[in-house]
């Protein structure tokens, strides 16, 4: 007769394990505990029954934790303690595009373009002036690279956000995998371009991003919640989403006012 271990009995005490006939059992691990088997065994094995009784008696001795009561106004107290320490919230990248400031700036830009067009039509034509400002081809190339990389980061952020916010026992990641596969090739191009330009910061983040994208592509399409949580934990641990978001913002800024790439400290 095979006896159950203390660990098995602890799981049994806490109601863990599956009953025979539960369809989810067939895909379970070899260690899955069959409650029916344990129950039957405890009825027939005096030694295990004694061990179980001892375990149950001890755990029943563990007293209920007496939590100090908090008044109705406690929430307000907490708020007053934290309000001055609230940081800027990290909101989804697309939220910013719908803010009134952005919309009003966009409106102003459209008005200027229309005004310039109308003025151009009404003014008499003049002889074309010779160009006075030469465009540095290196700077133009850098701008193109920054614009393309920041767009790439925006797209990658959306994939990561989908992954981080997926819910449910099993999640279908087929779309995210296809999307990630598309992003991997461009990610390599941008990483290499950043490395050649000496932009260590961008190259490093893109390197980390590639590892996560590869993990998504080569992972299961329908991961279980625990598997998904493991991937999420790794993304979380590396603060990848945060880095991608911050870098995208920085690249947008650099497009407007290009500067020398920062070095990682």
């Amino acid at each position: 007769m095979t006896h159950y271990t203390e660990d098995d009995l602890i799981l049994y005490y806490y109601g863990e394990g599956r009953r025979r006939g539960d369809p989810s059992t067939s895909s379970g691990s070899p260690q899955a505990l069959w409650r029916d088997d344990v129950e039957h065994h405890l009825e027939t094995c005096a030694a295990c029954a004694k061990a179980y009784r001892a375990l149950a008696e001890t755990l029943q001795l563990v007293p209920v934790i007496d939590v100090p009561e908090r008044e109705e106004s406690y929430g307000l107290d907490v708020w007053q303690r934290i309000r001055s320490r609230l940081p800027e919230p990290v909101v989804p990248w697309w939220h910013g595009w719908f803010g009134w400031k952005r919309l009003s700036l966009a409106g102003a830009a459209v008005a200027i373009v229309i005004g310039a067009f109308v003025a151009g039509r009404m003014w008499p034509p003049r002889a074309p002036a010779s160009p006075v400002v030469a465009v540095d081809p290196n700077e133009a190339g850098a701008r193109v690279r920054l614009a393309a990389t920041s767009d790439h980061l925006d797209r990658s952020e959306r994939v990561l956000l989908d992954l981080m916010n997926a819910e449910g026992q099993t999640v279908d990641l087929t779309d995210q995998q296809a999307w990630s596969a598309d992003l991997i090739d461009s990610n390599r191009l941008y990483r290499d371009a950043a490395a050649r330009a000496g932009d260590e910061l961008v190259a490093n983040v893109l390197d980390e991003l590639e590892r996560s994208l590869l993990e998504i592509v080569h992972g299961p399409s329908m991961p279980k919640a625990a598997e998904l949580d493991e991937v999420r934990a790794r993304v979380d641990l590396a603060a990848l989403l945060f880095k991608v978001r911050i870098l995208a913002d920085e690249l947008h800024e650099r497009e407007i006012a290009p500067t020398q790439p920062r070095k990682i400290t």
């Binding site: 939590v67 100090p68 406690y74 107290d77 907490v78 309000r83 609230l86 909101v91």
Partner: peptide, 24 residues
């Protein structure tokens, strides 16, 4: 989620006691 701290205050007031119980 859009950064409205007054809305977050409502959430703090609503959940604080449960959060304290679990934390304790």
């Amino acid at each position: 989620r859009q950064g409205d701290s007054d809305a977050f205050r409502v959430l703090v007031e609503r959940h604080s006691r449960n959060v304290f119980r679990l934390a304790f």
